[in-house]
Amino acid sequence: MDLPLILEPSELQAVLGQADLLILDLGKSDTYQQAHVPGAISVAPGDIQLGIKPAPGLLPTQQQLSILFSRLGLTQDTHVVVYDDDGGPWAGRMIWVLDSIGHKNYSFLNGGIHSWLAEQRPIESQANTATATEYKVAAIDESVSITQAQLLTAIEAESVQIWDARSHKEYTGEKAVSKRGGHLPGAVSYEFSIALDSDNHLKLRDLEVIRKELAAIGINGEQTLVSHCQTHRRSGLTYVIAKALGWPMQAYAGSWAQWGNDPDTPIETGE
């Protein structure tokens, strides 16, 4: 199945019901119960997080991921379409999870359920379950992620560009969700929601406009790009955007929950 990374609702509707298509809804359960894309299976966002403090956003274990994707009926030939009800951060995180397990056949539904409903595409309300498989995550592709220790080394070497997807108040340290507020040395602020078009049902804004806005603050893909937020939810969307722009990207899944709660990590505050 040859589908683009950023998938429009019309393109998804055209392939509904095809074999080897797996649609995953990462939105809230009550939204799913009211209306979802036909055939979509609800996935709780907690299923794609390790969930252990101080860094709950780390990747689940290989065993946990094997159990999850077996339950979802994943096979090597499956094309996965992901969406949520918040503009795409959870869906984007799932793209990163799929990259981490080496499954590269996937698409991101532009605008998620909001654009789907706005375009009056077909919906259903009954819950769906998959035919289970025996999917084994044999290895984790660590190239799509960066650890705290690796990031410390990269910051010292000035070998990465860092995209902080949190709110600007979190970035400056005015708002602190962890023990310490502020941002990683050298990081630049571009809140994930800036990339969404609130006048067009939370679809992504024009990617070339986003590219220019990021270039203006020093993010241009000439070095490996690292993105984070508090728990690698919001930066799930920035992960997808970087992939759509063709930039090398690594997720810092530990995010500020890990960095800001470590008394020994270097931080900067203010602009």
Score class of each variant (00 low, 15 high):
50 L>Y: 02
126 Q>H: 13
95 I>D: 07
261 N>F: 00
177 V>H: 03
168 H>M: 14
163 W>E: 06
6 I>P: 07
207 L>F: 08
155 I>T: 04
127 A>G: 12
199 D>W: 15
28 K>D: 08
65 L>I: 00
271 E>I: 13
258 Q>F: 03
35 A>V: 12
240 V>F: 03
173 G>N: 06
178 S>N: 08
195 A>F: 05
225 L>E: 05
16 L>D: 09
8 E>Y: 12
104 K>Y: 15
86 D>F: 15
184 L>F: 05
215 A>P: 14
36 H>Q: 09
119 E>Q: 12
202 L>H: 10
230 Q>R: 10
199 D>N: 15
263 P>C: 04
100 S>H: 03
29 S>M: 14
32 Y>K: 04
135 Y>G: 01
47 D>P: 13
86 D>S: 15
108 F>S: 08
70 S>V: 04
48 I>Q: 00
65 L>N: 00
83 Y>T: 09
190 Y>C: 14
166 R>W: 04
269 T>I: 11
22 L>C: 10
117 L>Y: 13
200 N>M: 11
71 R>V: 03
31 T>I: 11
145 S>Q: 14
90 W>H: 02
259 W>M: 02
156 E>C: 06
247 W>C: 08
93 R>V: 00
134 E>D: 15
242 A>H: 10
152 L>C: 08
37 V>P: 09
196 L>F: 02
228 H>A: 07
88 G>S: 07
236 G>F: 01
109 L>R: 03
247 W>S: 05
256 W>C: 07
56 P>M: 01
100 S>P: 06
189 S>C: 14
63 Q>Y: 11
211 R>H: 15
117 L>D: 12
154 A>Y: 09
50 L>C: 05
1 M>H: 14
65 L>Y: 00
271 E>M: 14
135 Y>I: 00
192 F>L: 06
7 L>W: 06
189 S>K: 11
270 G>P: 12
55 A>Y: 01
270 G>D: 11
82 V>E: 06
221 G>T: 10
222 E>R: 10
18 Q>T: 14
44 A>N: 09
270 G>A: 06
24 L>H: 08
34 Q>C: 11
63 Q>V: 07
60 P>G: 00
32 Y>V: 02
111 G>K: 04
206 D>V: 03
102 G>V: 02
11 E>R: 11
38 P>G: 05
237 L>V: 04
119 E>M: 10
209 V>R: 15
228 H>F: 09
51 G>M: 00
32 Y>H: 04
